[in-house]
Structures are given as C-alpha cells and as structure tokens.
C-alpha cells in the first residue's frame, strides 16, 4: 500500500489550475495553427491569427488565455492500492483550486447557490469526478470549463429508432444553435448511450482527449470524421463571423445503454479547450 499526503494533491491541483489557464496542450496549439492555414475567409483568418497571438501573450506575460477561467472540473482516478493520509481527499482538491485561483490571479466565477448567487470568492467548490482504478498511482486531469460554451451544450434523449441519423442530427442541431456564442472554432465532445448523467459525463470527458487521436471504435472514428466535415460546412467560422473552421475536432465516447433509450449529450468547448494532466 502506497501512501500519498493530501497536501501533495493540493499542491499539484494548484499548479494545474494555473498551468491550464495560461498554456494550451501542444495538440490544441497545433490544431489552431492548422486551422489558420486552412481558413479561406479573410475575417476568419485574421481572428485565428489573433488567437495565436493571444496564446503567446498569455504564456509570456502570464495573463489568462480567457478571462473566464472557468469552473474547475476535476477527473481523478485513484489507484486502489493508494492510501491518502493527512486529510480528506475532496478538501485537498478544493484547497488546491482555492490556492490556484487566488495565487494565480484567476477569476472567481462560482456562486454559492444557483438562485441566490453569492460569489464564493475562491472559485470553490470544484466539480469532482472520481474513479477507482487498479494500481498505486493517482491520475488527475484539471479542466477549467468556461460557461460561454457550457451554456450551449445539450442532452437529447433519442429513441432507439432514431439511430445513427438521429445522433448526427442532434450533434448538428447543438452546434448550429451554439453558433457564435460558443466562441468557435470549437471542440465538440459527444457522449452516446449510458444513462442521462453517464452520457453527459462522457461528453465532458471526450473534451480532454488528445486531438490527434480518434476513437478506437471504427464506426465512432468514422462518425467523428464525418461530423467534423459536416460541422465545418455550416459556414459559422471563427468567432461566428463566417468561414469554414467552425470546429477543430469532434470527440465521441459511447457506453452500453438500455433497450428503450439512445441518450446523446453534446458538450461544447470553445477554442480555449483547457486541461492539465498529471500522475502522482
């Protein structure tokens, strides 16, 4: 049994909150560079080059890439041979978020109650998704999620008879409705199957996948590629001002579901698709 100090988890989460808000992963940067080369629209090209400039300034001057530094979503996989000592795990995670958002000059965007809406002033609590896995390591992904694109995300409880065509239509509907509001070029995370909450969680998790990897399931890989072409034919373009680069990637996850259902969740992320990953 390996022991890990709760304070170590706090320290790592703090650093990851700051890192994710100032630096995009190499695959995201590459996708934006490629998009700038492929865009035909003059205004679209201009916006994409300004987004690249924005990333440079963010990293050089340590100014967050986007002022909406998000609500902190944490995916944490804890090996069953790990013993966490010196504190409660969820408290350790929230303390990391608190320190990261305070010391990193990140915006505090969380309100205590959805109706009363008093700001918690330290961006906690985080939204934490736990998974118990084999082994003795702790695998953490920090996803600061902005709400411009989160607000445009959708769940569709389709009928089995709607089939693959229904899924395609659902994805296109969500993207069309999102349009300029979701700060395109966007990343489209899709969950198919499971239950109501499982498909939403898959859609969120799909956003963290390396953009250079496609689904290992052949029909999902085809669907990802087909939907990216269809979305980029909508004409929405960078900033929603017209062009062909509306999405950089469509990432799909699927799970067994019930004989009566076909849930589809579409979680949209703007071009500031942030995530930091570490293994303790």
């Amino acid at each position: 049994m390996r022991t890990v100090e709760a304070i170590e988890i706090t320290k790592q989460i703090k650093e990851m909150c700051i890192e994710a808000n100032h630096f995009l992963s190499p695959d995201m940067k590459k996708a934006l560079e490629t998009a700038a080369k492929q865009e035909d629209s003059i205004l679209g090209k201009q916006i994409l080059s300004q987004l690249e400039e924005n990333l440079e300034i963010a990293g050089k001057d340590m100014i967050p890439i986007c002022q909406d530094t998000g609500m902190a979503v944490i995916f944490i996989k804890v090996g069953q041979d790990v013993h966490i000592i010196g504190g409660n795990l969820e408290n350790a995670i929230n303390e990391g978020v608190r320190q990261g958002y305070q010391d990193g000059y990140l915006r505090k965007s969380v309100v205590e109650d959805p109706i009363e809406r008093t700001n918690t002033k330290d961006n906690t609590p985080a939204v934490v998704h736990y998974k118990i896995t084999e082994g003795d390591s702790i695998d953490i992904t920090v996803v600061p999620k902005g709400f411009g694109s989160e607000n445009m995300s959708r769940i569709f409880m389709l009928k089995p008879a709607d089939g693959l065509e229904g899924v395609k239509e659902a994805i296109l509907t969500a993207v069309k409705d999102a349009g300029p509001n979701a700060c395109p070029p966007m990343i489209v995370g899709v969950g198919i199957g499971g239950t109501f909450e499982k498909c939403a969680l898959m859609a969120k998790h799909a956003l963290t996948r390396n953009l250079e990897e496609r689904s290992s399931v052949p029909y999902l890989k085809d669907l990802e590629e087909e939907m990216l072409i269809k979305i980029n034919g909508l004409g929405i373009g960078p900033g929603g001002l017209g062009g062909k680069m509306t999405a950089l990637s469509v990432n799909i996850e699927a799970y067994p579901t019930h004989i009566a259902g076909l849930p589809v969740a579409v979680n949209i992320c703007c071009h500031v698709n942030r995530h930091a990953h570490r293994v303790i």
Partner: peptide, 10 residues
C-alpha cells in the same frame, strides 16, 4: 460590436 471571444490576454 463583437470583440474576439477567448482573446482576453490580447
């Protein structure tokens, strides 16, 4: 007017 969404540093 629209400003560029997600270009807060710039």
């Amino acid at each position: 007017f629209a400003a560029i969404g997600g270009a807060g540093a710039l």
